[in-house]
């Protein structure tokens, strides 16, 4: 039985006279990796920002587990179990791994002191170590190490672990493999599969179609602010998807160049 986690219905968003998002509707199911593809300016980031609460939509509805919700801030999105991980903007490099993992949700003593409450440092450290162990990167990483000492791939893994930590229903990955080496890219993709197997749903935004075919279950293609195609990975191939993205018939183009 497929369980629906997130459903978007006819989302629209304009910036002045620019209709960045004309209409977007799709459904994300439990334990599924859906890739969101599209050229620059196709409306991917607008859609992601709307779901993660960066700005409100003009029109349209968002449902989480069948419940209609209103997302007005990033906090709202997080509270609903939607965690977004942006390339390079998800971690504070000068803070330790442990402090990053709990940033904004720090365990504290004497809660009544508000922002002046002392961090529960032992608890913070233990929880961070346990989390690192659970996601299988504890051998190399110390919870007290500064994020600035980590590689790009390790940082992505930390950011994704943090999203899992807070039992996120939906994890949105915005270009998670940009600027990563081959080895690290494979590490992150493997991690995405583990995240899915742990029951989380992943919305993956990327430019790299090869990565999509390695991890995604379904592909959604956007062009000029609209969703123009939705296919399961098993039912399609690289060339078809590429031609949908660009709007040109790539397989026909390829045939042409071959015959020449």
């Amino acid at each position: 039985m497929v369980q629906e986690v997130l459903r978007l219905q006819n989302l629209q968003k304009s910036f002045g006279s620019v209709r960045a998002l004309k209409s977007a509707s799709f459904t994300l199911n439990e334990g599924e990796v859906v890739a969101l593809l599209g050229d620059n300016g196709a409306g991917k980031s607008t859609l992601i920002k709307a779901i993660s609460g960066v700005f409100p939509v003009d029109r349209g509805d968002i449902y989480v587990r069948g419940q209609k919700v209103s997302i007005r801030s990033t906090r709202d999105a997080m509270d609903l179990g939607i965690e977004t991980i942006h390339q390079d903007t998800s971690l504070a490099a000068d803070l330790s791994i442990a402090r990053n993992l709990f940033l904004g949700r720090e365990p504290v003593n004497l809660k009544w002191l508000g922002v002046f409450a002392p961090l529960a440092l032992a608890k913070l450290r233990n929880a961070a170590s346990a989390l690192l162990k659970r996601v299988g990167i504890s051998k190399k990483l110390d919870a007290d190490a500064l994020v600035s000492t980590l590689s790009g791939g390790e940082r992505q893994s930390i950011a994704i672990s943090r999203a899992m930590q807070f039992a996120a229903k939906v994890i949105i990955l915005d270009e998670p493999t940009n600027n990563l080496g081959v080895e690290e890219t494979h590490g992150v993709l493997r991690f995405v599969k583990e995240v899915r197997d742990a029951g989380h749903s992943v919305l993956l935004i990327t430019h790299n179609i090869h990565h999509v075919f390695q991890v995604a279950d379904r592909i959604i293609v956007m062009r000029r602010g609209e969703i123009v195609a939705e296919q399961t990975v098993a039912d399609t191939d690289l060339l078809t998807v590429e031609s949908i993205i660009t709007g040109a018939d790539m397989s026909a183009l390829l045939r042409e160049t071959r015959t020449k």
Binding site: H86, T89, L103, V108, V115, F116, A117
Partner: peptide, 28 residues
């Protein structure tokens, strides 16, 4: 010293200076 090293607020202050977008994305 207490605020910067041991309080929740200090964690926020360092995070904001280190990577404001990351801090905001975590609801700080």
């Amino acid at each position: 010293i207490y605020i910067l090293r041991y309080a929740k607020l200090g964690n926020w202050i360092s995070a904001i200076g280190s990577n404001r977008n990351a801090a905001v994305a975590r609801g700080v």
